[in-house]
Simulated assay, not measured.
Amino acid sequence: MCIMAMAWAAHPRWKLILIGNRDELHARPTAPLARWQDEPSLLAGRDLQSGGTWIGVSDAVKSAGGRAAIVTNLRGYGAPSPDRASRGTLVTDLLTGKGAYSDPQTARLEDFNPFNLIWIDGLHAHFLTNRPAPVRTHLTPGLYGLSNGALDAPWPKTLALKTALLDWLVAGAKDPLDLFDALRAESMPDGGIVPDAPSDAPDEAAISPIFIRNPVYGTRCSTIIAMDAQGHGTITERRFDPHGERTGEDSIGFHWPA
């Protein structure tokens, strides 16, 4: 997942709006959004190469509240090392509450290639990163943007997606699926600061739009997570082929205790 914007506890109707694009090699095998058979509380797409996910939600299970998480790679540290744990495993463990990395306070963040991660545990939102040193911090209610740099780094496409989300909130915040239009933007934004480090993906341009249309490495899917103040939510995934054409869409409802 290479770009996201989030409104956390920033609107009277919506407790959480989380939108993002996953940019990846089109050849990497992936399963679409579904309720996982081996983890029935987990709603997410699945990376069939490493077994984890890049974004997802989990239902409330017994005494545990619902959870959501999204991860992005962090550029500027060179090509990823293949002997490190998959960053998708960290997302999956946090969502299910199982595995070696299920506790964000004790998880060995240094086991992974560079990443940024936002994790919501029902009542609170958190930000985790492991470069240049491990950081674990709470996020206050507000609007956030994240790509492959620091949290809220003013990259052109990050500013553009945050602005689109803010405009949607101010305009009435009616149908979250309208935000797919913002995730499909292919024009280059005017404002912002250009990233000072090259992408670790050799097929990605130094400055890219929100939606990347590229036959080798591009936007594989767009995801919208929307949950209202009563805890009723939906996760929707829209998928694209190497030509940037839409190939499918799935949507699954969930509920967290209010």
Rank of each mutant, 00 (worst) to 15 (best):
A5F: 08
S222N: 04
P189I: 06
A68Y: 00
E245S: 15
G145A: 10
N130M: 03
A229V: 03
T247Y: 02
A60W: 01
A173D: 05
I118D: 03
I3E: 07
P40I: 13
G65P: 05
T223E: 09
I120E: 00
S102G: 04
H243G: 14
L117V: 11
L146K: 04
D228I: 01
I19T: 01
Q230V: 07
G191Y: 06
N130T: 11
F254G: 08
D152T: 11
N148L: 12
S208T: 11
T236P: 10
T89D: 07
C2S: 07
D200Y: 04
L48Y: 08
F115W: 13
R131M: 11
G88Y: 03
L33P: 14
P40E: 11
T72H: 05
D203L: 09
D241I: 12
R84Y: 04
A44R: 13
C221Q: 02
I118K: 01
D167W: 05
G78S: 09
I210M: 08
G45L: 03
R22C: 07
F127D: 00
L128P: 08
H138V: 09
A150D: 08
G45H: 10
A171I: 06
D111A: 08
S50P: 03
D121K: 06
A150T: 07
S102E: 06
K15W: 04
E204N: 13
P12M: 00
A34H: 15
H232Y: 11
G56R: 14
I70P: 00
W155P: 07
Q230N: 14
T96S: 14
L169W: 01
L74R: 15
T30V: 15
P114F: 00
M1E: 09
D203F: 12
N113K: 15
L139A: 10
S147A: 07
T92F: 06
N116P: 03
M4G: 12
T158Q: 09
P156Y: 00
L43H: 05
P202T: 04
G76F: 09
M4F: 13
A34N: 11
G231L: 07
G253E: 13
L166I: 02
K62M: 08
A44E: 05
A7I: 00
T158S: 13
Q49E: 15
T106R: 13
G51Q: 09
L117F: 13
S41L: 05
K15Q: 15
K98H: 11
T158C: 14
Y101S: 09
A27L: 14
R131H: 05
M188G: 00
R46S: 05
D121L: 04
A205G: 12
Y77I: 09
D228G: 03
G149S: 13
A31D: 15
G97D: 00
G233A: 04
D83A: 11
A229E: 06
G56Q: 11
L18T: 01
G253S: 14
I17G: 07
A7P: 00
A229P: 00
I55P: 04
E245Q: 15
S81A: 15
R67S: 01
A5C: 10
A64P: 01
W54M: 10
G244H: 12
S187F: 11
D152Q: 05
G233M: 07
S58P: 10
A185T: 13
A31Q: 15
P242M: 08
G248C: 07
E110S: 13
I3M: 05
T53P: 13
A85G: 02
H124K: 09
G218M: 02
P195Q: 02
N21K: 12
R46D: 03
